[in-house]
Amino acid sequence: MSTPAIKVEHVSVRFRPFVDRRPTLRRSLTTFRHKETQLVEALKGVSFEVQKGEAFGLVGQNGAGKSTLLRVIARTLRPDEGRVVVRGRMSTLLQLGVGFNAQLSGSRNIYLGGLVAGLTKNEMDERFDEIVEYSELGEAIYRPMKTYSSGMFSRLAFAVAMHLDPEILLLDEVLAVGDEGFKQKSKASMHELLGRSGSIVYVSHAVKQLADFCDRAAWLKDGELVAIGDAGEVVSEYRDFVQRRRKELRAQGLA
């Protein structure tokens, strides 16, 4: 097997956020430090690989550690233990509007978005027209981005990300935005990326689409990888679990 595009090895991340407990008389008398911290293990020894040309899905409930894992792969968050090896140029679409300044025009933001990702101004000059055309924003490209709808915002973000020649794309739920036509187009671009043996890591709660699009998937539960394998199988396992949980909760509510 060829070398993987992403290699995640025994990654653990711990946070120590402050907890805001309801103050009781007893607690306020017995503790001097009113700021308590609590250890949160966001990721517990997660390991997996993403191959070249592969679309890899991540599923899990809110707070399971999906976003933390994406940040570790994007290498903006350094894990407490373990390491991540990434081979290839990476584009990230983890949150809407990152790297953009809403006061400025779309055209200026195309440059900002490309430069923040590490391209030079000349490289962006070459790509500019293509990005504008791809985003289908027309004359709106010269308006400040604060006048854009969220669909327009995400179209521009996606257009920029796809024109940075990424070999690895990290996506968090952004596909849900934009109209039907643009969705089809973005899907085609992603298939094209996979065809050039690029890799995609895709996080979404729309598990049916995720199962259709991804080759393999992993299920993250409370910071641990509980299942990894064929996307369809992992997703159906996850859905069974969610349904079972819902039934249990309902039964408890009725009891």
Partner: peptide, 9 residues
């Protein structure tokens, strides 16, 4: 913060 959390530079 948003930029720092999402993009590496």
């Amino acid at each position: 913060a948003k930029l720092l959390v999402n993009i590496r530079f």
